[in-house]
Each structure stands twice: as structure tokens, then as C-alpha cells.
Amino acid sequence: MKKIILLLIICFSFNANAQKSASNLYKGTMDGKFPITIYIKTEDHPCTADLMYTSMYRYNKSKKWIQLDVTQNAKKENEFVLVEHGFSGVMILKKTGNTFTGLWISPDTTKQLKVELKEAPMTKKEIESYEDTMEKVNYENNDC
């Protein structure tokens, strides 16, 4: 019995350490006029084989980040829906290589703006800064 318990502990420890994460920065434009930046963190879901996404974006002229709820299409893995916190807008994006293209749609659907993004390199220090910012944005939006 002790061997079985030890084996289970080892398996759980291995699985906990096997989780991977990746951080990506995308820069581009909305409507070809408004420069935007999107930061996306991808992690293995701890309970399923799915991926989890944590994300935020901002218009480059603004210092305010907008938290995004990201859902990946289960049937077409290169398609994503990103919903702004408070449902102030939605992006429907398709990923091809290191680019995203698609639409930003206002909640009343009267505005639809083209979105074009390309992956941008980041230093380790920049990743840490984006992670800190994302944590603050999440806290501001979800603190009791």
C-alpha cells in the first residue's frame, strides 16, 4: 500500500511540474488607424488537456489595459474569441503563423473594425512587467 501511495505522489508531482506556459506579445492596428498591443499568456489547464489563456490589450495611446476573456474554438484551433471585461467589445481572430487577423465588434454590433496583429519579441524583463500589469488588471477587475 505504501508503494502505491508513493507512486501516486510521484505521478502527481510529475504532472504538476509538467505544466507549461508561454507568453506572447502582439502589436498591430485596429481599423488600420489605431495602434494596439495584446499580451497573451497560454498555460496547460490543470484539470483537462485544454489550454487556458489569460490576456489583456490596450490602445497604444492609452495607458489603460483592458482584460480579455479568451476562448479557443474547439473545432478550429486557430480561431479565437476575445471578450473585453465588462463586455465593451469582442474580437474574433484567426491565427496564422505568428499573426492574428479578424474583427473587433462593438456590443451593439454597429461598429466592426478590422484587426491585424503580428507577434513582437519580448525580453525576460518585459515579460515580467507584462505579468505584473496583468495581475494588477485582474485584481482591479475581480477583487471583492
Rank of each mutant, 00 (worst) to 15 (best):
I66S: 11
K94W: 03
V81G: 01
Y39F: 15
I40S: 10
K95M: 14
T29V: 05
W65A: 04
L68P: 01
N60A: 07
F12G: 13
L25D: 04
E131L: 13
D143W: 14
M134I: 10
E119L: 10
A22S: 04
K76R: 08
I66C: 05
N15P: 00
N60G: 01
S88Y: 09
S62L: 10
F80H: 01
S55F: 08
G32W: 10
P121V: 08
C144G: 06
F80Y: 13
V83P: 00
T37M: 10
A74K: 11
P107W: 03
C144M: 12
K75C: 02
M134S: 03
K118C: 01
L82R: 04
A49D: 14
W104M: 03
Y39L: 08
Y57T: 03
M56W: 07
D132K: 15
I9C: 13
E135I: 14
G89D: 02
T109R: 07
A18M: 13
M52P: 00
W104L: 04
S23G: 02
K2C: 01
L51Q: 14
E116L: 03
T133M: 11
E131Q: 15
M1V: 09
T48L: 06
G32H: 08
L8P: 00
F80G: 00
L113C: 01
E135P: 00
N15D: 02
N138V: 05
T71L: 06
T29F: 12
I10W: 12
I10T: 11
C47K: 14
K124S: 14
L6V: 03
D143M: 13
V70Q: 06
I105M: 07
E126N: 12
N141F: 04
E84K: 12
L51S: 13
K94M: 10
I105H: 04
E135R: 15
S23K: 05
N60K: 13
K63W: 08
K114G: 01
F12A: 14
D44A: 09
N17D: 02
W104Y: 15
K124N: 10
K63M: 07
S88I: 04
D132F: 08
T71D: 02
K64W: 01
I5N: 02
N15R: 12
S13L: 13
K33Y: 08
K124I: 06
H85K: 09
G32E: 06
E116H: 02
S21M: 12
G102N: 04
T29G: 01
M30H: 02
P107E: 00
T71K: 13
P121Y: 03
H45V: 04
I4Q: 11
Q112V: 01
Q112L: 00
T42F: 11
S129K: 15
I127T: 09
T54W: 08
V115A: 00
T101F: 06
S55R: 07
V70E: 04
C11N: 04
L117S: 06
Y59E: 11
S129N: 15
T133D: 04
V90K: 15
F14G: 03
F87K: 15
L93N: 05
H45E: 14
G86E: 09
E116P: 00
K41E: 14
T54H: 11
F12P: 00
F12R: 10
K94I: 12
A22Y: 07
K114S: 05
K76I: 05
L6G: 04
S62A: 11
I127P: 00
